[in-house]
Computed example of a mutant assay.
Amino acid sequence: MNSHFFDLLAGCHLRLVGTPLVAPETTARWLYEDAPFGVLAHDAGDDPRFTYANLAAQRCFEYDWEEFVGMPSRLSAEPDQREDRQWLLDAVHRDGFATGYRGRRIAKSGRRFWIENVTMWNLVEDGVLVGQAASFQHCRDA
């Protein structure tokens, strides 16, 4: 992750959610490699595609960076769970962020799991929505 994207991710979280995503001394490298929580981001397209997934998220979803980045984010949820996921995306788009979400997801292997204690926020640069990001504290098998 480049420092510009890290600053966008952390800055939007602080501005919209009102709390820091990470401690001020945290680096982009730490967030990617060592964070004990998952972080994902997707673009603002009509069918959003992942643009970022830290290692904790990659482990939960069982995709590596090359598989994750560019994948439509809707594929992270099973078809019967996509309406719930879309509700969250719409709420974040409208309100800037949402917290406390819990949703069932599907890993590359087909394993179902819950992402819990999710915070999702808009990524806004120069007044333009460029995507959305999410952090989750836990992933547990469903």
Rank of each mutant, 00 (worst) to 15 (best):
R15I: 04
L89W: 06
F113L: 15
V22E: 07
N117C: 10
L21T: 04
E33L: 02
G18V: 11
Y101M: 04
A98V: 01
A91F: 02
M120H: 08
V118S: 08
M120T: 14
Y101V: 02
Y52M: 14
S76F: 11
V17F: 12
A98K: 10
A56I: 09
D46R: 01
R15N: 02
L75D: 01
T19G: 08
L40H: 10
N122T: 15
A77G: 05
V118H: 01
I106V: 14
E78R: 10
G11H: 02
R82L: 12
A98Q: 04
G70E: 04
W65M: 07
F113H: 15
E67G: 09
A107H: 12
E62S: 11
G11P: 05
H42C: 12
F37M: 13
L123I: 13
A91P: 06
W30G: 11
L88Q: 09
A41W: 10
W114N: 05
V124F: 06
G100D: 07
P36Q: 13
D95I: 15
F37C: 13
N117Y: 00
A41F: 05
V69S: 00
G103D: 00
L88E: 10
W30F: 15
R74Q: 03
G110D: 04
D47G: 14
H13T: 11
V69C: 08
Q81D: 03
C12S: 06
G38L: 00
G127Q: 07
D47S: 14
R29Y: 13
H93I: 03
C12I: 09
V69G: 06
L88I: 14
E83R: 08
V92M: 05
Y63L: 15
D34Y: 10
G96R: 05
N117L: 11
W87L: 12
R59D: 05
R85L: 11
Q81E: 07
Q81H: 11
D43A: 11
L123V: 11
V39N: 09
V17D: 12
D84G: 07
D47F: 13
D46I: 06
K108G: 01
L31T: 00
G110M: 00
A56L: 10
I115F: 12
E125K: 09
W114P: 08
I106H: 11
V124E: 00
S109N: 10
N117E: 12
R104W: 05
Y52P: 11
I106P: 04
P48E: 14
D84T: 10
D95R: 15
V69A: 09
T99F: 01
E33A: 03
A23C: 02
A57F: 00
I115S: 00
T27H: 02
L40Q: 13
G127C: 01
R85K: 07
E116D: 15
K108W: 09
E78L: 13
R49E: 03
A35C: 15
L75Y: 15
S76H: 02
P36F: 08
V118K: 13
A91N: 05
A107S: 02
G110I: 03
Y63M: 15
T19R: 04
R82K: 07
E25C: 14
P48V: 03
D84F: 15
D64N: 03
F97G: 06
G96A: 12
G70R: 13
G38Q: 02
S109M: 09
G127L: 09
R102Y: 00
D34L: 13
R15W: 09
V92F: 08
T19E: 13
A91T: 09
D126A: 11
F37N: 14
L89P: 02
Y52W: 14
R82A: 00
Y63Q: 13
A107M: 04
